[in-house]
Design a protein around this nucleic acid. Structure first.
Lengths: 253, 253
DNA sequence: CGTATTCTTGAGGCAACTCAACCGAGGTGG
DNA sequence: CCACCTCGGTTGAGTTGCCTCAAGAATACG
């Protein structure tokens, strides 16, 4: 869990089998052979620079996109031109799932930093799914997972206060970084305050205020883009989320 | 309740091919042969009465459930015991998609009225998907569609005012009834005000107030459970949603 | 450097919530 | 048949959390 790897290896390993994300990405659970077949359809283009689009609203849907490194935001553009952030995506996550239904992307995806992407042509993936049951299951699983995640966000947006939203957001980011093998207690926010605010349905000022409040309380330490979580338990309290079961006694009081 | 029509034909047509929902449900686009194969795995149990559960939070996931008639609400139960409505589901819609990922249902589903359900064992569906490409695609499509729908709700919850939420909600219901061949301008709310409020992230009182306000303005006519939409265009204005691309302009104001 | 952008901080207003009372339909039982 | 209760829905009054507006501070960038 070091940070030195920020010097992105351009000479990235091209195969899924060599990618350290294969455990949490699409290939999870495939045999080496199957993974090789999957590999053969995946296109790996040159990394996107910050601000570049992966796809745009209305683009014809042809592929899913897996984030290999870096991060991406997805957002919709309202009829009035306003933008509405619908998600942030870290390495190992799949983008573009909304497009399958209508063969057209609904929303935009843009790199928040230098980001490398694996492009997975969907027709070919679908065809492979016919031959490799486990792969079909994986696609189902990824789609289902996305549905579950979004329901979580719906709950957050519908029921939680501003402070709860921020706390949940930070915890969720921490947990996702942790899953990817990065430090969970110290990480960088690759998105702006205004992206965060937009995503959480808050005003920028509110996000800023709560960041400073939580910092003053010593629960976290947020300075510019750098987040340190000092008291995860307190944060979880604020977020109104159950403590993880690492601790034997659950909700004694 | 006026249950005269509730004496539904218990002897309902059992085959997808005879179901008037086949156009919008899972079998959409399958050949008669394929539909027959799909049919063979579908279990049709006796209808659920109002208040009965289809599945509960934490239940082992084995099947998807298609609403054949009636309506269903899905809801999560918070750690504090509070309930949070995550969706309403009409005929032709598929429930339980969130469960695929972890082989366990996340949330509850409960009939809002007498409701008949087709149970689709997922392992068998998945296996059939291997043999019937079009079926695999359909499952992908249904999952993707759910993702898109949920993103819409996220937007609604994150950015819209109470009035916009109500208007959107009514329009969406109308449109869904329309798709199912029911009248779009006049329908029944099978869910309570408090379910609606909970779903939309509002207080019951707010829902009530806006219903009466919209009624006084003549835009709709909401009396008890019965909704009539008098001025769809105005409602769309309030919802801040684009007018449908109909050649004839309805707004002659 | 100067300018632009992002972030922070403060003051004030309003939309939606909470609290509380009332209404009306349905159901129950005397 | 009416008295009573319950429960969902409506309405009003007062409160508040978050937004808006405005201005200043910090940082990025050409």
């Amino acid at each position: 869990m070091t940070n030195d790897t920020n010097v992105t290896q351009f000479t990235q390993k091209r195969d899924c089998s060599l990618c350290n994300l294969s455990e949490i990405c699409l290939p999870e659970g495939l045999t080496p052979d199957e993974m090789g077949t999957l590999d053969s359809i995946i296109k790996r283009r040159k990394p996107k620079q910050k601000g570049e689009f992966i796809f745009r609203d209305g683009d014809t849907f042809t592929s899913l996109y897996a984030v290999r490194s870096g991060s991406v935001k997805t957002f919709a553009t309202g009829n009035d031109g306003s933008t509405m952030v619908t998600g942030f995506h870290l390495s190992g996550e799949i983008l573009g799932l909304e497009g399958i239904n209508c063969k057209q992307h609904v929303g935009n995806a843009k790199a928040l930093e230098t980001t490398s992407i694996c492009e997975i042509p969907f027709n070919q993936l679908s065809a492979l799914g016919q031959d490799i049951p486990k792969l079909q299951q994986q696609v189902f699983r990824v789609l289902s997972n996305e549905i579950g995640q979004e329901q979580q966000v719906m709950l957050l947006l519908g029921k939680k206060s501003s402070e709860e939203r921020i706390a949940s957001f930070l915890l969720r980011l921490a947990s996702r970084y942790h899953t990817r093998g990065f430090a969970a207690k110290e990480f960088n926010l690759s998105m702006s305050r205004s992206d965060i605010a937009n995503y959480l349905g808050l005003a920028v000022e509110t996000v800023s205020r709560i960041f400073t409040r939580l910092t003053k309380q010593g629960i976290v330490n947020i300075n510019r883009k750098l987040v340190m979580i000092n008291d995860e338990s307190a944060l979880r309290d604020i977020a109104n989320e159950p403590q993880p079961d690492t601790d034997k006694k659950r909700t004694n009081s």
